[in-house]
């Protein structure tokens, strides 16, 4: 798992990784996933451990997964984006308003709306100096309100948009298309974070914004950009979700932000900023999707599910922190 630590200066080379000791933290989530699969196999047998179900789990995880990739960049700067769930609903509805204009217009509108809402978040935080928690909490309300207002509180049918539905339910060489989209977004995120100056700047801003500024990093621009990126990811997630539902619902995406944040944090990205890992985020998303899937298959009562889910999050984070 490649963890990008904060560089002391923005233009300093990343510390060499070779020859270091085995780092338990890098493999903790892999162990958690392995344990979940073994336990699931024992409890539920072939209905859990099957190619069909694993693709089902990954397809379900892909929506929160895309959000979590954007969230990784936000959290890397020591920020938070509480608005992504509501933005998913708003982006879907914004695209849905153009349902008669065809698939491409739906996708463009959803992505553009996500970018616009992300830009408002970014501007408020980077230039308006509003605390990320408050700015994105405000956007959570604004975006949900916009979704309800634009849709007149009624789901918009997208049954006629075959290409949009393909993003949600189609396949590429038997692999779910939504999973492919998630993996592509994750790969781009990994390259951005680990192989470009931009990624180093993001982590540097999270680690020490003042030091980054002195080193020549345009801190405000970086902060602005990560929220735009998060908004774009919300737009992509909206396309995937609407494709799966064949409709744009103004009440969808509820609490997705918490799942995304939890996936990022159990993946090993520091809430305090300055340390980020895309691979960890992907593993965090898979962990969550597996837990939800297994608990549903077991047909457990909701209260037991919630306690179990909370316990697993806590255990996973404690495992992650063991070597920190």
């Amino acid at each position: 798992m490649t963890t990008t630590p904060a560089a002391p200066a923005a233009n300093a080379p990343a510390p060499a990784r070779s020859g270091r000791k085995f780092n338990f933290q890098d493999y903790a989530l892999v162990a958690v996933i392995a344990i979940l699969i073994i336990v699931g196999g024992i409890l539920e047998g072939s209905s859990f451990v099957s190619k069909d179900n694993f693709f089902n789990v990954l397809r379900q995880g892909s929506i929160v997964g895309v959000l979590a990739i954007g969230m990784t960049f936000v959290i890397a700067t020591a920020g938070i984006d509480l608005s992504v769930g509501s933005m998913v609903a708003a982006c879907g509805v914004a695209g849905g308003l153009l349902v008669d204009s065809g698939d491409l217009m739906f996708i463009v509108a959803a992505l553009a709306f996500g970018i616009a809402l992300g830009a408002i978040n970014g501007a408020a935080i980077s230039y308006g100096k509003v605390v990320p928690f408050i700015a994105t909490l405000a956007m959570l309300l604004i975006a949900r309100g916009l979704a309800l207002w634009m849709s007149d509180k009624t789901p918009i049918s997208l049954f006629s948009l075959d290409s949009v539905r393909w993003f949600g339910t189609g396949e590429i060489l038997t692999i779910p298309s939504s999973l492919v989209v998630f993996l592509v977004v994750a790969a781009i995120g990994w390259v951005l974070l680990n192989r470009t100056p931009y990624g180093r700047y993001v982590v540097a801003v999270g680690g020490n914004p003042e030091a980054a500024r002195i080193a020549g990093v345009k801190v405000q621009r970086i902060l602005f950009s990560v929220y735009v990126l998060s908004g774009l990811c919300a737009g992509i997630a909206a396309v995937l979700l609407c494709g799966r539902l064949a409709s744009a619902s103004p009440v969808s995406g509820n609490l997705y932000e918490l799942d995304a944040i939890a996936a990022v944090v159990i993946g090993g990205t520091s809430l305090a900023g300055g340390r980020a890992t895309i691979v960890g985020t992907v593993l965090g998303v898979i962990t969550f999707a597996l837990v939800f899937n297994l608990l549903t298959l077991m047909n457990l009562a909701v209260e037991i599910q919630q306690v179990t889910k909370g316990g697993i999050i806590l255990a996973a984070v404690l495992l992650q922190r063991r070597s920190s």
Binding site: E44, N53, N56, Q60, L241, L245, V251, G253, T296, N299
Partner: peptide, 24 residues
């Protein structure tokens, strides 16, 4: 009644819950 799960009156939750139920 082989499966009984809440989906919070939300279509997206209804989708994921039902997908999981159909696996088993």
């Amino acid at each position: 009644i082989v499966a009984q799960q809440p989906a919070d009156f939300a279509p997206d939750k209804g989708l994921t819950v039902m997908e999981n139920i159909l696996q088993k």
